[in-house]
């Protein structure tokens, strides 16, 4: 079975990628399995300056998923490029995806420029969809003009590096946002980020997460993710997509690829099962054989 896929010339030995925010900076996972099994790794969302993120509680369990309101905790781009990626490179030689967030177009551009200049970064993933920060993230992913503005600003400062824009599901017309990013020069898209949600503690009569709302992810969002990946794939023919949202097994990977994804990110499943990506990669050949697939590339976007 051919499992190798390519994202804008970057070769992945298989399509499985741990999603940003569910795998730390990779080194945190080194004790569980050999990371070189992975197709690629998307690093934790990074901003220009270090961020503590939101106060705790940041986690609320939900049926078939969870809400998180981490709020982009990260040590800042300088530490990520100077410490986190070199540490990861000691144990992992595959493609690295730098996930970048910001609070202004200028911040996105300067952070992406720094990441793009790092030879150990293979793909830039521009997160315009974080629901857990005010005045940034999702604000840019909620309207086509703002999404296009960020995309073109990042493309201008990242010559030679594929730029994927990570989209929010919290929009009315995903196709319009996807097209706006494509028209602004995006080399690819990642979708979906988490779905804005809420849980309430009946005992305290307060929201469970301190930030009130958070991003819902996990198995429950797979149908939403499949629908949106499919809409984006139809809106932007030929544009590679990393499909993300609710993937928990090899069958889900195949569904996501048929919906239009060239590669597939696994997110919340890592939090309940640290072996998730390794398990899914191991399951893939048998799952593909079961459905008569001898080359994963042959099913991308067939729906």
């Amino acid at each position: 079975m051919v499992s190798e896929v390519k994202l804008c010339g970057v070769s992945l030995k298989n399509p499985v990628i741990p999603a940003s925010g569910t795998f730390g900076f990779g080194t945190e996972m080194a004790g569980w399995y050999d990371l070189n099994q992975l197709g690629a790794i998307s690093l934790k969302g990074t901003t220009l300056e270090p961020r503590f993120g939101n106060e705790c509680p940041r986690i609320a369990e939900c049926p078939e998923g969870l809400i998180n309101s981490v709020g982009l905790q990260n040590p800042g781009i300088k530490a990520v490029l100077g410490e986190k990626i070199p540490a990861l490179r000691k144990i992992y030689s595959g493609p690295v995806i730098a996930n970048i967030s910001g609070f202004s177009v200028e911040e996105y551009a300067s952070c992406c420029a720094a990441a793009g200049a790092c030879e150990d970064v293979d793909i830039i993933e521009v997160n315009i969809s974080c629901p857990n920060v005010h005045g940034g993230g999702m604000a840019f992913g909620s309207n086509p003009e703002a999404a296009a503005e960020v995309t073109s600003a990042v493309k201008a400062v990242c010559p030679g590096k594929p730029v994927f824009v990570k989209l929010s599901p919290n929009v009315t017309d995903i196709a319009a946002i996807a097209r706006a990013c494509a028209d602004a020069g995006a080399d690819g898209l990642t979708l979906i980020n988490t779905v804005l949600g809420m849980r309430i503690d009946l005992k305290t009569r307060r929201p469970v997460v301190a930030a009130r709302y958070g991003g819902f992810s996990g198995r429950a969002i797979l149908p939403i993710a499949l629908r949106m990946v499919n809409q984006a794939a139809h809106a932007c023919p030929g544009l590679p997509i990393m499909g993300c949202g609710g993937v928990s097994c090899a069958d889900d990977v195949l569904e996501m690829m048929m919906a239009g994804a060239t590669a597939v990110q696994v997110g919340a499943e890592n939090l309940r099962d640290p072996m998730a990506c390794s398990r899914i990669i191991a399951e893939l050949p048998a799952a593909a054989a079961k459905y008569g697939i001898d080359d994963l590339n042959s099913i991308v976007g067939i729906i």
């Binding site: 940041r58 981490v70 939090l271």
Partner: peptide, 22 residues
């Protein structure tokens, strides 16, 4: 004690402030 996501250090869901940072 804090409400946790992964329990093994990957999700940053249980971060606290300390004298030496998060």
């Amino acid at each position: 004690e804090e409400r946790m996501g992964c329990g093994c250090g990957i999700c940053y869901g249980c971060t606290c402030h300390t004298a030496s940072g998060p």
